[in-house]
Design a protein around this nucleic acid. Structure first.
Lengths: 271, 271
DNA sequence: TCTTGACTCTCCCGTTACTGGAGGTTGTAT
DNA sequence: ATACAACCTCCAGTAACGGGAGAGTCAAGA
C-alpha cells in the first residue's frame, strides 16, 4: 500500500490526475482511509493505469475508456470501437490538412501582396429556400431591371412579401459580357400561383463559398474572382450557378451607390 | 441597422456566437439601445465578421484574432503569426498520425489474438537520477545476488538509504543467456564516496517506453518482447540499455514470488 | 514529546468557444 | 388588447485536468 505521491512518481501521472480518475471511476485507490481520506494504492493497480494511459493516447475520451475497461466486450465490439476511433482520427487529420491549406494559401498570397487586403471567403450552408423567380437571357449583365419590375410587380399585386434579401443566379459556365442567362429570385413563404414568366420552386440547401462585396456593382468582379481563386486554392469544386445576393441594394435601385452590399455565393463541394 | 436575428441569418453565425463575439470584443454591434439592450448591426460589419470566420478556420484562437484585426501589424509580423500557426498545425497532424499508428497497431494485433490481453506500453519521462551502482559480467541473468549483496552492504555501512526502487540495467545489444553485462543500481540522494566496485553517478533524464510485469521473473521476457515490438510498431528507436525496475521485489529476494511487480523500461526516441 | 516540513485532503476557479435553458422584456401584427 | 416572435441577461455545462486556498496528517529530528 503506497500513498498517492509515490504512486504518482512511479507512474509519472500527476496527483491531480489520479484524484480525477478516482472521482471519475476510472481508477479507485485500492483503499481509502475513512478518517483521513488518504488514498492508498497498490502496485497491482499499475497495469490498469497504464491501460488507461494507452487508451488515452489513442485519443479515446475517458468515458469510453471506463467502458472499455469495465464492460466485458466481445472482440467484435472492440474492433468496432477501434475502427470508429480510426475514422475519427482520419477525419481530424483531414480537417487539419485543410486548415494547413488555408494557412499556406494565405502565406503565398502575402508573398505577393505583402498585406492582408483580402476579400475574405467563408464556407457556409444555405438552407433550402422557396423562391419566386423569372429566368431569361438578358442582353447584358447590368440590365436586369425589366425582370425585377415584372417579378416585384406580380408579388405586389398578389400581396406577397419577400422573406429575405433577393438575389440573381447566373447560369453561364463562363463569364459572358452579353446574352447572360440570369434568373432573378425573391424568397417567399406564402403559397403563390405561377403566372406568365414567374416560376415558384424550392431551391435545395447547399454549401456555398461566399464573399461580401461593398460598393458599386462595377467592382463586383473582384469578389467573384476572389471566390473562384479561393475555391481552387482550398480544394473545392464549384457545383452550381453563382448567386448574387443583394443584402443591401443601392438606393432607388442605383447600381453605383457605394454603400451597396452584395454577397457572392458559389455552391461548392470538397474535392 | 438590422437586429441580431437578421444579421445571424445573413451571416449564418448563431445569435449566441454573435453575442459572445460582442462580449469578447471581437465584433461589437454598430449600436446598442441603452434602454432595451438590443444590438443593432449594419451590413458594413459583415466583412469584419467574415474575416473573423476565415481566421477561425485557420485555427487561430479568438484572442489572437482580436489582435490580428485591431492591431496595426507589419506584413512581417503577420507572416510570423501565419508561420507559427502553420508549425502548430503540422505538429497537430503529426500527433494525430501517431495516434492513428497506435490504433492501427492495436487493430492488426486484434486480428491475430482476437482479444485485448495486451501488456500495455506507455511512454514516460524518467528524471535524471543519482545512483550508486556496480557493473559486472555475470554468468546468467538470474544470478545478480552477489552484486546486490555487495552494493546494499556498502550502502548500509555508509548509512545511505535508497530514495526509490532499485533497478538493473542490461547493456547487451542482443539477448544473452549467459555472460550478461549487467549493472545493479540504487537511487540515492546523499553524497557517497565510491569504493571498490561501487560507482556513483547521475543518469541523465530520458524518455522511456515502459511496461509493467507482474509475477515471477521467469515470464519477464514477455514484457520485454512486448515493449520491443511496440516500439517498432509505433515508430520509436531504442537508444540505450534496458532497465528492469524492481517496483515491488519478491519477498526475501525470491525470484518466484507471484506478487513481484517489475517495470521494463527502454530509453527511446521518435524516429 | 514536540515541532517542523513534507504530504495529503477537499473545495473552488479557470481554461476554449461556445450551446442550452430559465425567466423576463420588447416589437410587431392582428 | 393580445398573442407571439424576437430579444435581453444570467447561469450551468462541456473535457480533462492545473492552480491555489485552507486545513488536516505523517515521519523524522531535537
Amino acid at each position: 500500500m503506497i500513498r498517492i505521491g509515490q504512486f504518482s512518481r512511479i507512474s509519472q501521472v500527476s496527483i491531480k490526475t489520479l484524484r480525477f480518475y478516482d472521482e471519475q471511476g476510472l481508477l479507485h485507490p485500492a483503499s481509502v482511509d475513512d478518517f483521513t481520506g488518504y488514498r492508498y494504492y497498490t502496485f497491482e493497480q499499475l497495469p490498469r493505469l497504464y491501460r488507461i494511459l494507452a487508451l488515452k493516447e489513442m485519443g479515446f475520451p475517458l468515458q469510453q475508456i471506463g467502458q472499455l475497461l469495465d464492460e466485458e466486450l466481445s472482440p467484435e465490439q472492440l474492433r468496432g470501437m477501434l475502427k470508429a476511433r480510426r475514422a475519427e482520427i482520419q477525419a481530424k487529420v483531414q480537417e487539419e490538412m485543410e486548415r494547413l491549406a488555408r494557412v499556406e494559401a494565405r502565406l503565398s498570397q502575402i508573398e505577393q501582396e505583402s498585406s492582408m487586403n483580402t476579400i475574405e471567403v467563408v464556407i457556409k450552408k444555405v438552407e433550402p429556400l422557396k423562391v419566386a423567380s423569372i429566368r431569361d437571357t438578358i442582353p447584358a449583365y447590368s440590365q436586369q431591371g425589366a425582370l425585377w419590375n415584372e417579378l416585384e410587380g406580380y408579388l405586389a399585386m398578389q400581396r406577397v412579401r419577400p422573406t429575405g434579401p433577393c438575389f440573381t443566379m447566373y447560369y453561364d459556365e463562363e463569364y459572358k459580357e452579353r446574352d447572360v442567362d440570369a434568373e432573378v429570385c425573391e424568397p417567399i413563404e406564402a403559397d403563390l400561383a405561377e403566372f406568365r414568366n414567374v416560376k415558384v420552386r424550392t431551391l435545395p440547401g447547399v454549401e456555398v463559398a461566399a464573399a461580401i462585396h461593398r460598393g458599386a456593382y462595377t467592382t463586383l468582379g473582384k469578389a467573384v474572382e476572389a471566390v473562384i481563386r479561393w475555391t481552387e486554392a482550398n480544394g473545392y469544386r464549384i457545383t452550381g450557378p453563382e448567386r448574387e445576393v443583394y443584402i443591401r441594394p443601392g438606393r432607388n435601385g442605383s447600381q453605383a451607390d457605394p454603400e451597396t452590399v452584395t454577397e457572392i455565393q458559389f455552391p461548392v463541394e470538397k474535392k
